[in-house]
Simulated assay, not measured.
Amino acid sequence: MTDHPANEMALRAYGFDNLDLRWLRSKTGVKWGRIAPDVLPAWIADMDFPVAPPVLDALAATLSRGDLGYPAWSNWGGPDPLANDFTKRMELYHWAPQPDWVRSFSDIIQAIQIVIQTMTAPGDGVVIQTPSYPPFLKTVTMMGRRAITDPIERTEGGWSFDPQRLRRTIVEERPRVLIVVNPHNPTGRVFTRAELEELAEIAIANDMVVVSDEVLADLAFAPHRHIPIASLSPEIAARTITMTSATKAFNFAGLRCAVTHIGPAELREAIDAAPPDVFGVVNVLGIEATKAAWCDGDGWLAAVRDRLRQNRDMVCDSIVQRMPMITCDPPEANYLLWLDCGKLHKEDTAVFFREAARVELSTGKSFGPGCEDFVRLNFATSPNILTEILSRMAAAV
């Protein structure tokens, strides 16, 4: 995706630059609703910014016409309600998916659970690259599958995985599924074509199903560009379940709407043969918000990326200058910073910052083995609040 940086007037017009702390604390969602009144949240992956005007307009229009009845896509057959919108959106990434392979769900976690339930048996292995989004690890273990972790490690060139080690692990463990998160959460890496080709070759050679979480694609910073792994070849597309959503980049996670492009025919057939609504039905407002975001929201999105890029640079500069005992790499996408705090020698660094700085961060312990010294910082807020977060952290260390 090409970046078109927003000017300062656009940033102000969208309300990104000076958020009202009272407005934020009035929110009842998990980010602001589960913290003490004197704590500043920089943990769960919600942005603080107001919702895109085209999304708000679409929701208001739906409500004003009272269009909250049974949706036309529930039990009535026909194409998925987001099939054409998803296919059109993927043109940004030079990919032409199959519209009839598209199935919508309420959540990416739900979709992954459906894949694991359908395509694996208890005891089967699922490869997860760590650090990993914590619900993925929890899902695999709670469903009685073996979580086989393969670390993404910090190198001179940034965060990367070792394809030879991954090959050896797969030969030894014989897993059925490979979960890929690209752009990666929490390191912010945008995998290159060469890296994705390595993963595709490994999956094909070992007859594996690939689950590719690409929900952060729209938040890649230029010159980095997202490449859907299913776009590499028909062979990898036929074994890949691509998962995405507008809810992350456009900040409406509470509307619960995700889109999957399902390559394996047996999985599509199993989903279509299931009893009506056993997997739930995507809600009307989630569909309307997604359509509006993908059709009319790219101006807002460009301004968000511009604000996030500036915030990223502010955080990284502050850490270098004021907290040199903490190590970080500027993310190539998203609004999350993976901080190595090992030199602080804290049993749980997130607890330390909560107690000493009154800043809530995500603990690295939940991201997999070897992540105990890390915390994840969410910098998707306005500069005035981010400045206070960084000042508190710097004073604490």
Rank of each mutant, 00 (worst) to 15 (best):
R165V: 06
G158Y: 03
P175I: 00
A200Y: 02
T120D: 04
L199R: 02
L199V: 13
V180P: 10
E214D: 14
R154L: 15
L216D: 07
L196S: 00
V181E: 02
I204Q: 05
K248C: 03
E153G: 12
Q113D: 15
M243V: 13
M119E: 10
H224M: 08
Q129T: 09
G158F: 05
T240Q: 08
I148W: 00
I152N: 01
K248P: 06
N185K: 10
F161Y: 15
M143T: 13
P122V: 03
G188R: 05
A230R: 06
A220R: 06
R189Q: 13
I179Y: 08
S233D: 03
V180N: 04
N206I: 00
P228A: 03
R154K: 09
A249Y: 05
F161D: 09
H226P: 06
T187C: 08
A249P: 10
A121D: 15
G157K: 07
V126W: 09
T141R: 12
V126N: 01
S212M: 10
V171L: 15
V215I: 15
Y133F: 14
Y133T: 06
M143F: 12
I128L: 14
P186G: 02
T192V: 12
P223G: 07
I227D: 04
M142T: 14
G144V: 05
F161E: 09
A203N: 06
L219Q: 04
V140I: 15
R176H: 04
M143A: 14
L196N: 11
T139Y: 01
T120I: 11
P186Y: 00
S160I: 08
W159R: 13
I236G: 08
H184N: 14
R145D: 09
L216K: 13
E214I: 11
T187F: 11
D218N: 09
V127H: 11
D124G: 04
I116R: 08
Q129L: 15
P131Q: 06
L196M: 02
V171W: 12
G188P: 00
R168G: 11
T247L: 12
G125V: 08
P122F: 09
G144H: 02
Q129G: 00
T242S: 12
I116D: 02
R193F: 08
T169M: 13
V211M: 13
G144Y: 01
L196E: 00
I116V: 07
A200N: 09
R165C: 03
K248E: 10
N185S: 06
F221A: 03
F161T: 05
R189H: 10
I202Y: 07
L199N: 06
P175E: 03
S212K: 02
